[in-house]
Simulated assay, not measured.
Amino acid sequence: MDIAYWTLADPLALFYAYAGTLKLLRDPERLRPMMAWVDRVPRPAPRALGAAELFGAAGLLLPPLTGTAGWLAPAAASGLLLLQLGAIPVHLTGGDRRIGLNLALLAVAAGCLALSL
């Protein structure tokens, strides 16, 4: 089960660490080409989402690596799952029908959650 968890959690954490860092460091104008939804949300929202993504990535990796606070890994996976459940309607209501990545992230987060329980 450990191999299965790490096979899912590592790339998921890497993706969220990258995406979260972009949202934290870049202005909305520089995010717009890859994230069209930034114009439809309040200005602090991308930064808050970026912070949540970074915390989620850390929560997927650090507790299993350190062997402490084991409840944080399923909490992080749940948070990332909820994040995607919120992202899908944002994409669909904004005319952006490309939700394939969101569905894949949702499935991988669900897998991480199931394997971390």
Score class of each variant (00 low, 15 high):
Leu12Gln: 09
Leu12Glu: 06
Ala13Phe: 02
Ala13Trp: 00
Ala13Gly: 12
Phe15Val: 15
Phe15Gln: 07
Tyr16Asp: 04
Ala17Asn: 01
Tyr18Met: 08
Ala19Val: 08
Ala19Tyr: 03
Ala19Glu: 07
Gly20Val: 00
Thr21His: 06
Leu22Trp: 03
Lys23Asp: 05
Leu24Ile: 12
Leu25Gly: 08
Arg26Asp: 04
Arg26Cys: 09
Asp27Cys: 01
Pro28His: 01
Glu29Phe: 01
Arg30Met: 07
Arg32Val: 03
Arg32Ala: 13
Pro33Gln: 10
Met34Cys: 02
Met34Asn: 15
Met35Trp: 07
Ala36Ser: 15
Val38Glu: 06
Val38Trp: 03
Pro42Val: 06
Arg43Asp: 09
Pro46Gly: 08
Arg47Ser: 14
Ala48Met: 12
Leu49Met: 14
Leu49Glu: 13
Gly50Tyr: 01
Gly50Phe: 00
Ala51Val: 15
Ala52Leu: 15
Leu54Val: 14
Leu54Pro: 04
Phe55Cys: 15
Gly56Gln: 06
Gly56Asp: 02
Gly56Asn: 08
Ala57Ile: 03
Ala57Arg: 03
Ala57Phe: 03
Ala58Gln: 03
Gly59Ser: 12
Leu62His: 06
Pro63Met: 08
Gly67Ile: 10
Thr68Trp: 07
Thr68Cys: 02
Thr68Tyr: 03
Gly70Asp: 07
Gly70Thr: 10
Gly70Arg: 14
Trp71Cys: 04
Trp71His: 13
Ala73Ser: 13
Ala73Gly: 03
Ala76Ser: 08
Ala76Gln: 01
Ala76Asp: 02
Ala76Ile: 10
Leu80Val: 11
Leu81Arg: 10
Leu81Trp: 13
Leu81Cys: 12
Leu82Tyr: 09
Leu83Phe: 15
Leu83Val: 03
Gln84Ile: 00
Leu85Glu: 07
Gly86Pro: 05
Ala87Asn: 07
Ala87Thr: 11
Ile88Thr: 11
Pro89Val: 05
Val90Asp: 06
Thr93Asp: 05
Gly94Glu: 06
Asp96Asn: 15
Arg97Pro: 00
Arg98Gln: 14
Ile99Tyr: 10
Gly100Lys: 08
Gly100Ile: 01
Gly100Thr: 11
